[in-house]
Computed example of a mutant assay.
Amino acid sequence: MNQYQHILVAVDLTEDANTVLTRAKDIAAFNQARLTMVHVIEPLSVAYGSDIPLDLTTLQQEITEQAQHRISELADRIDLKDQDQLVVYGRPEKEIHRLAEEKDVDLIVVGSHGRHGLALILGSTSTSILHGAKCDVLAVRVGSK
């Protein structure tokens, strides 16, 4: 029996996403597991507060279109089907936990910059994902080494 059946890889839209995605793909191939990729967009009203006297709809739509295009590019590199590419809205850790439970995921793969000291205490997305997950989490070290 394979250890993992369904892997959820959470990516940002930086070059680091390639490293994280490659690691997730390798693990999925080794386990003959399904691979689903997700990018979470924080709504601008959440990220910048509701005090902004602007209509952010157009900007939010542009961000979404760019994210979908980038996710599609990443997916093409590893032959990931359209139904396994997700762009969702909300707080990254909450949406990743929700998707992991909904889709019966048994491994979440995320990138981590390996912060320590004050940055670690204050938390990061990968730390938040780790602490709330009901399945295994693999943090792939990215960025400066």
Rank of each mutant, 00 (worst) to 15 (best):
L35M: 15
T36V: 15
M37E: 11
M37Y: 04
V38T: 13
I41G: 01
A47Y: 09
A47C: 12
G49Q: 14
S50Q: 07
D51Y: 13
P53G: 12
L54C: 07
D55T: 00
T57G: 11
T58I: 01
T58C: 02
L59D: 05
Q60D: 12
E62L: 09
E62M: 10
I63F: 01
T64S: 13
E65H: 14
Q66T: 11
Q66F: 09
Q68Y: 00
Q68F: 02
H69R: 11
S72C: 11
L74P: 02
A75K: 12
A75N: 02
A75V: 05
A75W: 06
D76V: 13
R77Y: 04
I78W: 15
D79C: 09
D79F: 12
D79R: 10
D79H: 06
D79T: 10
L80I: 07
D82Q: 11
D84S: 14
D84N: 08
D84W: 05
Q85S: 10
L86N: 06
V87I: 05
G90W: 04
R91N: 01
E93H: 13
E93S: 08
E93A: 07
E93G: 00
E93V: 08
K94N: 13
K94L: 11
E95V: 05
E95R: 10
R98H: 12
A100K: 00
V105C: 07
D106L: 15
L107T: 06
L107S: 11
V109F: 12
V110D: 00
G111Q: 08
S112V: 07
H113T: 08
L118A: 10
A119V: 13
L120Q: 15
L120A: 13
I121P: 03
L122S: 12
G123S: 06
G123T: 08
G123V: 04
T125P: 08
T127N: 08
S128V: 01
S128A: 15
I129C: 03
